[in-house]
Amino acid sequence: MEKALNPSTAPRAERARATRAQFIESDDKDMLRAARDLTKDLGEAKPGIYWPDMILSAGIGYGTLAAAILADSVTTAIAFGIISALALYRALMFIHELTHIHRNALPGFRAAWNLMVGIPMLVPSFMYEGVHTLHHKRTQYGTVEDPEYLPLALMKPWSLPAFVLVALLAPIGLLLRFAALLPLGVVIRPLRKMVWEQASALMINPEFRRKPAEGNLAKRVRWQEIGGFVWAWTLIGSISVLGWQPLLIALCVASLTAVINQLRTLVAHLWENDGEPMTVTAQFLDSVNVPPPGLAAEIWAPVGLRYHALHHLMPSMPYHDLPEAHRRLRKELGDNSTYDGANHSGMIELVGRIARSTMGVGRAP
């Protein structure tokens, strides 16, 4: 196959928008060098940002959830429920940071997040730790060994609504996992193996099977699963005291949170890879930045996730430093550079692009 022209070798004014296909075999080394050199003074996780952000988001989320439960009208309950879902969504997204920051960077933050957010939402950090990092391995990204990749742009049109709507059932599935499947797995070992391999990770690739946890992660799994079991039965037991309504409202809020995250996942990548390994540059261009201007992306892609492509260049960069890293790279590399190829205008444009691609697949003989 004839190799495509590397856009970085053409005069800037003549360059077309860079694409993944142009960098399957070789990297844009100038961009990678700039990413390294221009951000040397960044990268330190700041407790003064992480702790208040996480605690305030969780506090608003739980406070407005209580307001939704106690509301005296459906309209008021819906309004508080939406605010609660968005705030809890932001609090949940710190699970992404936990997988990348150095283990000694924020003492106590992982345990506090699990107690305040992860276990109450039945998404403890072990469901991401040891899994998400596989998505960043150069030889596994976009392949069948990547737990967080599906070639959605190459699938049938019905796959997109199905991908989003299945998230509505996530809270029920998590409640079932911790309340029933976990204790049954203690007695039925094959069930325990199946639950661990197929229902213990935030993944979208149905072919992925999780390997056994080891070392310190195995220890964290034990106490987090116990916490999830106790909390799941606390929620179920609350029905006898408070009735069905509080739990149903909480599940609706959690479902909305899951759907928002699934929509964000839908546009986190272009999903155009058919399973072959790619260079770092190709992975970057298959990923998505939705930079300013515009505040909407900060709501549906919080905690630095609006810079998801940049994150794939620098996975350990704290979320609060990504805007400055983006500004420096954008200024240095300019319009129509390889770096600019991963910058997109918003969710609507991205969903439309993926949908059009699936329509082409749907028309194929």
Rank of each mutant, 00 (worst) to 15 (best):
T76K: 14
T76D: 15
I78V: 15
F80M: 13
I82D: 09
I82L: 15
I83T: 08
Y89H: 14
R90M: 01
L92I: 03
L92C: 03
I95C: 05
E97L: 03
L98V: 04
L98M: 06
L98K: 00
T99L: 00
H100Q: 02
I101Y: 05
I101E: 01
N104P: 00
N104F: 07
P107K: 06
P107N: 10
P107D: 04
F109G: 01
R110W: 00
R110G: 03
A111W: 12
A112P: 03
W113I: 09
W113F: 05
W113L: 07
W113R: 12
N114F: 01
L115R: 14
V117R: 07
V117P: 01
I119D: 02
I119Y: 01
I119R: 02
P120Q: 04
M121K: 10
M121Q: 13
L122W: 01
L122R: 02
S125Q: 02
S125E: 04
Y128Q: 13
Y128K: 10
E129Y: 00
V131N: 14
V131G: 05
H132D: 08
T139P: 00
Q140E: 14
Y141A: 15
V144G: 09
V144Q: 13
V144W: 10
V144D: 12
E145S: 15
P147F: 12
E148K: 13
E148R: 14
L150S: 10
L150M: 14
L150A: 11
